[in-house]
């Protein structure tokens, strides 16, 4: 079993990231995308500067009418593409989907490789690609906080480990949903799985076995286990099957470490049930109506 140990300079490492982020103005550019806008909301292409400096991208969608609206940040998935926020989210929230550096629309000059991103410069905490990726997501939340149409008391974040890290770095978040964690206990997960993207770590360590300690050192800065005590939001942790990666035993240390109120949702494997339940939970927390249930069939 691989234990993730909080580095002694953990606080200094992340303060340096915050300082670097503060050094660069976000310099937001918003441009309406008429093709994607509707009669109930406007969709914008958003560009922001993050650390590096690096220009990142987001889809920012604002309902028409009187605000302020609850804000919602979707942190990026692990993959090259993120969709424009869903129709139902755009009706109810000022919602931002960030593309971190390397993903499509934020892939100049750096285009992420899949597989490859997860281990990009993983042996050096100062250069590991996720240092910038976390900063990109934090910058997204800062953007939401800067918007007059967003109710700063009602901001939600949805995603994987990145959502946890963002909410920990900027405790202005009211509601947080986390699922499909990737950076949490990653070396331990790699010992139990040969599925990508986790398998990227196994590939890397097969090629560079002598770097195992350095990899462990880097990953410790990004393990949400060491970030979540700073979270003040109400957190909904999505939990998988007992005994599985992502199951209750696996997540128990994280749950125990989480600051703020914690709730658990046991995923059902029935995607429609999970979708509707998670949507209703977030809607309740942020003071909007849940999306319509998808189906009632006649006959």
């Amino acid at each position: 079993m691989v234990a993730s140990v909080r580095p002694a300079d953990f606080g200094a490492y992340w303060k340096a990231v915050d300082d670097e982020l503060a050094r660069y103005p976000a310099a937001p550019e918003l441009e309406e995308l008429p093709r994607h806008s509707t009669d109930f909301g406007t969709v914008y292409a958003l560009k922001l500067t993050s650390i590096g400096p690096y220009r990142i991208f987001g889809y920012y969608c604002v309902p028409r009418g009187e605000g302020p609206f609850p804000g919602l940040l979707y942190t990026p998935r692990y993959g090259s593409v993120n969709h424009i926020p869903s129709y139902y989210d755009r009706e109810r929230y000022a919602v931002l989907q960030i593309m971190h550096r390397g993903q499509r629309l934020a892939d100049q000059p750096f285009a992420a490789a899949y597989p490859g991103l997860l281990t990009h410069d993983i042996a050096d905490p100062g250069r590991y690609v996720y240092r910038g990726i976390v900063a990109d997501c934090v910058r997204g939340l800062e953007f939401l906080l800067s918007r007059p149409e967003v109710d700063r008391e009602r901001i939600g974040v949805v995603g994987d480990d990145l959502a946890l890290l963002v909410a920990a770095r900027r405790p202005a978040v009211a509601a947080l949903q986390a699922s499909n964690l990737l950076l949490y206990r990653l070396l331990g997960a790699a010992e139990r799985s040969d599925e990508y993207p986790v398998e990227e770590v196994n590939d890397y360590l097969r090629a560079y076995p002598e770097r195992r300690e350095a990899v462990a050192c880097t990953l410790a800065y990004f393990d949400p286990l060491h970030h979540v005590p700073d979270i003040r939001a109400t957190t909904l942790l999505c939990v998988g099957d007992p005994g599985a990666l992502g199951g209750p035993e696996w997540l128990a240390p994280l749950r125990a470490a989480l600051g703020g109120t914690v709730e658990e949702y046991r995923l059902t494997h029935e995607g429609g049930v999970d979708r509707d339940w998670l949507d209703a939970w977030l809607a309740r927390r942020l003071g909007v109506e849940p999306r319509p249930l998808m189906w009632a069939t006649r006959g």
Partner: peptide, 11 residues
């Protein structure tokens, strides 16, 4: 509001 649809197999 819930959408009412015919059973999918009869579509």
């Amino acid at each position: 509001m819930q959408q009412v649809r015919q059973p999918a197999d009869q579509y």
